[in-house]
Design a protein around this nucleic acid. Structure first.
Length: 818
RNA sequence: GCGAGAGUGGCGGAAUUGGUAGACGCGCUAGAUUUAGGAUCUAGUAUUCGAGAGGAUGUGGGGGUUCGAGUCCCCCCUUUCGCACCA
């Protein structure tokens, strides 16, 4: 008889739901575990293999903890605002709200089919006022602290689609993702969150969390701390001064020219009459470039002189001031001193435009390159000569500070978070603009600013909300006169920056979340999601969490203590995507094999963090494994009722088969625990397969109570990986209670892990010549005697001189001969 | 260009602190059973020489350390991912 997965899976799903088995008591904090997967974007397409790969194994980990007696909270919800729904609306005319609600209905049903232990009472979606009201509240808190501010900033603009594009919608060649038109830069006044305020702490906090090193490194690079100095340069002939940032103040004597970003506010003033037309021309060409173009390292350097000169403060030299697009207005001060001798970019530029080059660090004798960025003593640098880089830097900073023309300074590559989106389907920004009062935040008691349903969301460049006069026109909250609302919406990463707190009570009305619960349940113990969020969501959430902490609502410093990235499942090497039409639909596998087998197969495929190319080749192997367990359990139907239970056995009192089984069961249990704990599901499944192979051979030769002992342990291990089948088999063995309602986990008998006999490998000159069994910890002399009696050993040592013999207890006996 | 990973049978992949390379599974081969099988069971399955015992080779390539290297060190090749002029 085959395992009837259709009926079993339906039955247990119904049972769990009706009995609310997975509703978590959040007041029970002893052994509390918060296990979280990144919530789902409710698109019109179904759950695909990638979702299953993300959610299934994570749920298995959660169930493992649950059986171990932890109070596990595992919620699921919907990241429901966002561009795809709106684009879909533009194409089909179906309102984003309608399509999103419909998609959520469908996806909820599919999620339930997976049989994960989600606490459905904690379900949330971000597109309802009950949720996004608190995005607005959060905005106001940031605003109050000066961490939300407005400024003019360039955005990617597609002149054909007439709309703003996110950076990721601009392709590598600078064209629009949808129509291929070249994207241009356009300036708009937009809202920013001052994430840079937390740069240092975001960097520092990385040491306190258990995240993949790779992800931490990416965040570290993204934050991009650099330690250096700011220096003021006087301009020859005019009053203005130019402030620059450098990480190499020690090379100041080698500064032979300066470069300003073309957008630098001083450019117009500095430029001489003769250079005006060239400079203006250059500024225009730069303006039409995207940031991606501008920052491409393969492009040859360009630039034009302004005709003005600056004075190098250390030696009074007149040095020319240029503008060039390789200097960015958005980093540092938008101006640099160029030191071609010690900077590759400056060297390239100097070479092209024939500018002077002075080396200020002694190059090694064998150095043949151009700019030298390495370590060495200072030269041509007056009072710094002979000092090595670090000392020279310190001395120069001291000198600059003394003369009051510079100071030590730390800069970050991290930019503030632009949250304005000229889109409809998102959280309205709670600000009103009044002619008299200016920018007025909406008072908290007037939240939420509701997103109106009736909106014309065809893209013409302006925010769709701007066309809804009922929404736009509102009295000023301060003075009551006619005013206008902000018509932009927030980036959806705002939604996902604090959703893990809202899960704890999504119906909470007193605030964004229940602070007591938030405090007790953060940081999240285990967070699982894609690596593509390394420098976006995962950084924003850390920032917002720290801000919420500073509001006094939680005490934890970090939102997610442990983070794991599931790998990507590809199809013939290509990332699965709807547009490519290569998405593997799990449905047929669920129909043929059931959800347990499918999820277990995904786990068995390989290391969880690596992912891999999709193939259904091996799924029959997992199915056979499941069938063998079912047959085995069926053969011992009801054994839990008839056989007495024993916690541990005295190994010496068991027969050979029993000893083997007893050892194998405990070894497997021990291995299983460490493998699943660390998300190594492939080896956990393999260990269970080995155990089942042994049980099939030897279980019939064991006493009834040891049979029960073994099978119960097998099934509790199976249950996290194949939850429906785990419950089913647990019942078949004769247990009346649901395994997940009354969790059971067995302790390893450590004594059973110690092997009685070991195989010692006998080598001659490092090559295996024999294998010999010995009792554990056999004395070297005994081993030696036996080894030398071996015919094959004799054959390989005869007539040779023994140089030495190495014995590694319980492992190896190596004879070295010449 | 810079940074971080990864290269193991026909395939997916295992291998504690350096100590039996190839666990587990797929596939394949032979046999058993079956009216049949996308079923089940048994045995085998890195390559190669050998009837066999056994030998030789083998973890991308080349060198090194060691009694012993998939694992440690150096050089090279391939590949995946991230960052792409951040002064």
């Amino acid at each position: 008889m085959r395992y009837p997965f259709e009926t079993a899976e339906a039955r247990w799903q119904k049972y769990w739901e009706e009995k609310k088995v997975f509703k978590t008591d959040l007041t029970d904090l002893e052994k509390a575990v918060y296990c979280l997967v990144m919530f789902i974007y409710p698109s019109g397409s179904k759950l695909h293999c990638g979702h299953w790969y993300n959610y299934g194994p994570t749920d298995s980990w959660a169930r493992f903890k649950k059986l171990q007696g932890f109070n596990v909270f595992e919620p699921m919800g919907y990241d429901a605002f966002g561009l795809p729904a709106e684009n879909y609306a533009v194409k089909t005319g179906i309102h984003p709200q309608d399509s999103t609600f419909k998609n959520i209905e469908d996806i909820r049903a599919q999620l339930k089919q997976m049989g994960c232990m989600y606490d459905w009472d904690a379900e949330l979606m971000t597109c309802v006022p009950e949720y996004y009201k608190w995005n607005q509240w959060l905005f106001l808190q940031l605003y109050k602290k000066g961490l939300a501010y407005r400024k003019n900033a360039p955005v990617n603009w597609c002149p054909s689609c007439n709309t703003v594009l996110a950076n990721e919608q601009v392709q590598n060649d600078g064209s629009c993702e949808r129509c291929g038109t070249m994207v241009i830069q356009k300036n708009l006044t937009q809202w920013f969150f001052k994430i840079t305020e937390y740069a240092e702490e975001l960097l520092d906090g990385l040491n306190k969390i258990e995240w993949p090193e790779k992800t931490k490194l990416m965040q570290e690079n993204w934050i991009g701390k650099s330690i250096g100095a700011e220096v003021t340069f006087k301009v020859d002939g005019i009053e203005d001064e130019i402030l620059i940032f450098t990480t190499r103040p020690d090379t100041l004597f080698g500064a032979t020219y300066m470069v300003l970003a073309p957008e630098h506010p001083l450019v117009t003033k500095l430029t001489t009459e003769e250079n005006k037309s060239k400079v203006d021309e250059y500024k225009i060409t730069v303006q039409s470039m995207t940031e991606i173009d501008r920052t491409s390292t393969v492009k040859e350097k360009t630039g034009v002189p302004t005709g003005a000169y600056a004075i190098n403060p250390v030696n009074g030299e007149k040095i020319p001031i240029w503008i060039a697009d390789y200097v960015l207005m958005t980093y540092g001060t938008g101006a640099i001193m160029a030191v071609p001798g010690q900077d590759e970019r400056d060297w390239e530029f100097a070479e092209k435009f024939d500018l002077p080059i002075i080396r200020t660090v002694q190059t090694p004798a064998d150095f043949e390159g151009k700019a030298f960025t390495g370590e060495g003593p200072a030269i041509n640098s007056d009072f710094l000569d002979g000092l090595y880089v670090a000392e020279a830097k310190a001395k120069m900073i001291e000198w600059l500070e003394e003369k009051k023309i510079g100071r030590g300074k730390i800069n970050y590559r991290l930019r503030d978070w632009l949250i304005s989106r000229q889109r409809y389907w998102g959280t309205p920004i709670p600000v009103v603009y009044c002619d008299k009062c200016g920018e007025v935040p909406v008072p908290e008691d007037q939240l939420p600013v509701k997103l109106p349903y009736d909106v014309d969301f065809k893209p013409d460049g302006a925010s769709p909300l701007a066309r809804n006069s009922e929404f736009v026109n509102t009295p000023c909250p301060k003075c009551g006169s006619d005013a206008k609302r902000d018509v932009d919406t927030m980036d959806t990463f705002v939604d996902s920056s604090w959703y893990y707190l809202r899960y704890l009570n999504p119906n909470f009305t007193e605030g964004a979340f229940d602070a007591e619960l938030g405090n007790n349940w953060t940081p999240v113990n285990m967070y699982v999601g894609g690596a593509e969020h390394a420098t976006m969501h995962l950084l924003y959430a850390r920032f917002i969490h720290k801000f919420i902490r500073d509001l006094g609502l939680v005490k934890s410093d970090e939102p997610f203590h442990k983070l794991i990235h599931q790998g990507t499942i590809t199809n013939n090497g290509a990332k699965m995507s709807k547009s490519k039409g290569n998405v593997v639909n799990p449905d047929s596998f669920i129909v043929d094999y059931g959800s347990d087998v499918f999820r277990m197969y995904l786990m068995f495929m390989g290391p969880y963090e690596l992912g891999g190319d999709w193939s259904d080749k091996g799924i029959v192997g997992v199915d056979r494994f499941v069938q063998r367990i079912f047959t085995l359990v069926n053969n011992f139907n009801g054994i839990a009722k008839s056989a007495p239970a024993k916690e541990n056995y005295d190994i010496a009192a068991l027969n050979e088969a029993e000893k083997n089984i007893y050892r194998k069961v405990n070894q497997t249990l021990s291995k299983f625990e460490s493998e699943v704990e660390n998300f190594r599901f492939n080896t956990a499944v393999a260990a269970l397969m080995e155990l089942v192979n042994e049980l099939n051979k030897e279980l019939v030769n064991c006493s009834a109570d040891l049979q029960k002992y073994s099978l119960e342990r097998l099934i509790t291990m199976l249950a996290p990986l194949a939850p429906h089948m785990g419950e089913e088999c647990w019942n078949m063995l004769g247990n009346d209670k649901s395994l997940y309602e009354s969790p059971v986990w067995f302790k390893v008998d450590e004594k059973a892990l110690i092997a009685e006999a070991v195989t010692v490998v006998v080598q001659v000159n490092g090559k295996v010549r024999a294998k010999q069994d010995f009792p554990l910890d056999t004395d070297e002399q005994v081993v030696k005697r036996t080894v030398w009696e071996n015919e094959n050993v004799k054959a390989h040592t005869d007539g040779k001189t023994v140089v030495k013999e190495i014995y590694v207890k319980n492992k190896i006996y190596n004879i070295v001969v010449r």
